[in-house]
């Protein structure tokens, strides 16, 4: 699929000697929702900062829809909208003035109809004449999103967009993100809520200590690295696992009352091993009282990956 953003051998060393990025390569596909995960200080915000023009790269190349961000910064930046992590907004302005300013700043002629559409989509329309200081934190976050969308960007960066945001706003925000994607906008988000990436993203990258340690389609990742642990509680104690009971590694708890095995892949993968085992147990007259299965989440995968790269 066509890349809308290409990052090649990108490095960043800050003046104090801190190496934030160690040669990052990344290609973002047009129209996808891409989640960038990583612990604090991994380089997420530096990476976004370089692409958006806030931070200077030490070396490497970034192109946005074919435009180099250094040589052709105007064309590149026009395509990008950024929702920063901090609630940085001039609180003395009205919502309307603030979004009008943003649109102008990105070189677009005024278009009240578009701004109205954006504000309505974010439930900000009835607040358009309010000074931003009078709004709640969640509403300020919406204003930041509205500002980023004011110039109709093709790529939207959301840096920790749901940090400190209530459930309702999070739901609204993800509905809006899906809607934007349907309209062809590419979305790149960083988040601490890994379940969000699990729900929303098409592809996932994990960054740690300035290195991208993984980029993969979310479902493939879950299939490849996801696990389901199945435990079967027995009504009577077993001395040992009967021969030929199961064609997979099976474990028996020390007290002999629990059989367990691990299924690889996503939970809904077409794997009938559990059913086969249960049928065998019934056939051999081994009675059981309960069956429990626990899936590993993206969070477990993430913790595992980051732990290994330490």
């Amino acid at each position: 699929m066509e890349s809308v953003l290409t990052i090649q051998k990108l490095t960043k060393t800050y003046d104090n000697g801190f190496v934030a990025l160690k040669g990052v390569d990344l290609a973002i596909r047009r129209g996808e929702i891409f989640a960038l995960l990583g612990p604090n200080g991994a380089g997420k915000t530096t990476l976004i900062g370089i692409v958006c023009g806030l931070v200077r790269a030490s070396s490497g190349k970034v192109t946005v829809d074919g435009f180099d961000i250094a040589e052709n910064y105007r064309a590149a930046r026009r395509k990008i909208g950024l929702v920063p992590q901090e609630l940085s907004v001039n609180v003395f302005e009205t919502v309307w003035d603030s979004v009008t300013f943003s649109r102008g700043l990105f070189g677009k002629a005024s278009d009240p109809a578009h701004l109205e559409k954006v504000l309505r989509a974010l439930s900000l329309w009835d607040k358009k004449d309010s000074a931003i200081r009078a709004l709640s934190g969640g509403m300020k976050r919406r204003v930041l999103i509205a500002k980023a969308l004011a110039h109709e960007p093709e790529i939207l960066f959301l840096d920790e967009p749901t940090a400190g945001v209530d459930v309702e706003l999070r739901r609204d925000m993800w509905a809006m993100v899906r809607n934007l994607r349907e309209n062809g906008v590419t979305i790149i988000l960083t988040t601490h809520y890994i379940e969000e990436a699990e729900d929303m993203a098409d592809r996932i990258a994990v960054i740690n200590k300035g290195d991208i340690i993984l980029v993969e389609d979310k479902h493939k990742l879950m299939r490849r690295l996801g696990q389901t642990r199945v435990r079967i509680a027995l009504t009577a104690k077993l001395e040992k696992i009967p021969d030929g009971l199961f064609d997979r590694p099976l474990t028996l708890s020390p007290d002999g009352t629990c059989l367990a095995f691990t299924q690889m892949g996503e939970s809904d993968a077409r794997d009938d091993s559990l059913a086969r085992l249960l049928k065998t147990l019934v056939a051999r007259g081994i009675d059981f009282s309960s069956v429990q299965s626990t899936q590993s989440s993206l969070e477990d995968i993430f913790i595992d990956l980051v732990g290994k790269s330490r």
Partner: peptide
């Protein structure tokens, strides 16, 4: 804008 952080918008804008 430097103090409040709103400078990010100017830095990310297609403006010389």
């Amino acid at each position: 804008p430097r103090f409040t952080g709103t400078i990010y918008e100017i830095l990310s804008a297609p403006i010389s």
